[in-house]
C-alpha cells in the first residue's frame, strides 16, 4: 500500500459565485465520496480562499513574508484528501470520483524516505 495526496484545484471566482443550493449539493457530493472511499481516506480538508494565505520566502540570508498564495494562478489549491491505495491506477480511480465542479484534481504519490 502507498499513500497518495489528492490536490483539489478550484477556480476561486467561480467557487465564490456559487449559489447556496449548489454549495450544499457539492458538500453532499463530498459526503458521498467520503462514504464510498472511507476505507482508503486517511485525511482531508477544504481550505479558505488563497487570499487568506501568507507566503514565507526564505533564502539569500533573509525571510520575507507576503500576502496571498505562493503562486498567483487562476486555479488555486482549495482542498486535499490523503488516501491509501495499492498503486497509481487505483489512486487515480479514487481521485476520479472526487467532485470538482470548478476545477480539477491532481494525484501525487507521497515520497517514502527509505
Amino acid at each position: 500500500m502507498s499513500e497518495y495526496l489528492i490536490l483539489l484545484y478550484v477556480d476561486e471566482q467561480a467557487s465564490a459565485a456559487m449559489s447556496d443550493a449548489d454549495r450544499a449539493e457539492l458538500l453532499e457530493r463530498h459526503g458521498a465520496f467520503q462514504q464510498k472511499h472511507g476505507e482508503a481516506i486517511r485525511g482531508g480538508d477544504a481550505l479558505q480562499p488563497s487570499a487568506t494565505g501568507r507566503t514565507i520566502h526564505t533564502g539569500d540570508g533573509g525571510v520575507g513574508v507576503t500576502d496571498g498564495p505562493y503562486a498567483e494562478t487562476k486555479e488555486a489549491l482549495g482542498g486535499f484528501y490523503l488516501i491509501e491505495a495499492p498503486h497509481l491506477d487505483a489512486a487515480v480511480a479514487i481521485a476520479a470520483d472526487v467532485p470538482a465542479p470548478n476545477g480539477g484534481v491532481e494525484v501525487r504519490p507521497i515520497l517514502v524516505l527509505g
Binding site: 497509481l88 504519490p109 515520497l111
Partner: peptide, 14 residues
Amino acid sequence: AGAGIPYHVPTAEE
C-alpha cells in the same frame, strides 16, 4: 517505482 505504476494487467474497464 516511485509513483506506484502497477505491474499488472489493467482491469477490463481500463
